[in-house]
Design a protein around this nucleic acid. Structure first.
Length: 366
DNA sequence: ACTCTGTCTCTAGACGCC
DNA sequence: TGAGACAGAGT
DNA sequence: GGCGTCC
């Protein structure tokens, strides 16, 4: 998934487009997050021991709810306003990639069966994680949870990453938080990695600024998209023998994919038959996203009764934990409700990029 | 020397208690 | 899945 | 920091 080798390419060629930030500096910010990606991680790791997971009385998995609940509280307590974006129907070009993932899961399922037969605990642990799949039920559970928590949910018509980027471009959120580099290819103006990594891991939040990156690479956005397709994306094969370095060189030299295809040595580089680079390009440049100006993202008060019904009664959560969490959400809401502008003007919040970015009112709104 | 490819590896949440 | 380390091959 | 628990 994502764009092959793009992190390193940017680190080497556009270092000024990436900067380390403190987790705390996102106080008051609206941040878009790909929900399915988060759910997937939770299912892999939360409360897992072999094939055993956290479950409710009916035996249904609750790991995704536990993970989503505690992470979201953590974000709210940091004054961050998360927007979770859920996947819709994947574009046809992604079918190949999805088929690959499906077959990998099939392999893992076989490996898991063997390991279970032999009783190899380590292998059971390893392979069971690879069989994880996010189902519509998981998604629905988490939508319900988030709505009860008063956190906005966006249902993307197609790719969640594309919808996140669209929210960012429309300045409805400040940035997209993801581990997936194709957020940049979709045109997110700001992109955060490692936002969720605890400070104990000593990994700082890395903020990517697309306009700075383009400036430094001396590429237009269209050229950047062609660069990403050449490096290798989810939508089509890349050209054998062309990696990040060569891709960057070719785009700089020829300016566009059409020109590259006209000019490169076709003996050395085999272009795949019916290579759908134009379609891939279109999916990055004009992805299917909802774009309703009316939909205002709202962070509402938590529904305590609803949360107790859903989490405690239906899913076996500890009631004290839930009521305490509700208090945390309320406190966090009060604290951050005065907003970023007031805190900045009172000098209660120190950030290092104020002067550079405060030319627009939207800076404070998103 | 540089770049790409394949293969192997590890890794993946959050919290609180000790 | 991704990303780092490494060996090996091609230019 | 290591380790068990969350459901």
């Amino acid at each position: 998934m994502g764009i092959k080798g793009l992190t390193k390419l940017l680190a080497d060629n556009a270092p000024r487009g990436m900067k380390e930030q403190k987790f705390e500096s996102y106080f008051g910010r609206k941040i878009a997050i790909d929900a399915s990606m988060s759910i997937y991680q939770f299912l892999i790791v939360v409360g897992r021991s072999g094939t055993e997971m956290l479950t409710n009385e009916a035996g249904e998995t609750t790991s995704h709810l536990v993970g989503m609940f505690s992470r979201t509280i953590r974000l709210l307590e940091a004054g961050i306003k998360p927007v979770y974006v859920f996947d819709g129907k994947p574009p046809d070009l992604k079918k190949q990639e999805l088929a690959k993932r499906y077959s990998r899961r099939e392999d893992a399922t076989d490996d898991l069966a063997k390991a279970t037969e032999i009783g190899n605990k380590e292998d059971i642990e390893k392979f069971s994680k690879r069989t994880v799949k996010v189902t519509p039920q998981h998604n629905d559970d988490c939508k319900k949870l988030l709505r009860l928590m008063g956190v906005p949910v966006v249902e993307a018509p197609s790719e969640a990453e594309a919808q996140c980027a669209a929210l960012c471009k429309a300045e409805k959120v400040y940035a997209v938080a993801s581990e997936d580099m194709d957020s940049l290819t979709f045109g997110a103006s700001r992109f955060l990695r490692h936002l969720m990594d605890p400070s104990s891991k000593k990994i700082p939040v890395m903020e990517f600024d697309i306009s700075q990156i383009l400036e430094e690479l001396e590429l237009s956005m269209d050229q950047f998209i062609d660069l990403c397709i050449l490096c290798g994306c989810d939508y089509c094969d890349s050209i054998r023998g062309i990696g990040p370095q060569t891709a960057l060189k070719l785009v700089r030299q020829h300016g566009s994919m059409e020109s590259i295809l006209e000019n490169i040595n076709k003996e050395r580089y085999q272009i795949p038959d019916d290579w759908p680079y134009e379609e891939a390009r279109r999916l990055f440049k004009e992805p299917l996203v909802t774009d309703d100006e009316q939909t205002e993202l709202k962070w509402a008060a938590p529904d305590e009764e609803g949360l107790i019904n859903f989490l405690v009664k239906e899913n076996g959560f500890n009631i004290d934990r839930v009521t305490k969490a509700v208090e945390k959400i309320k406190t966090a809401k009060t604290k951050s409700s005065q907003g970023r502008y007031e805190l900045l003007s009172k000098n209660l919040l120190m950030v290092n990029d104020v002067g550079k970015n405060c030319h627009s009112l939207n800076f404070f709104k998103s």
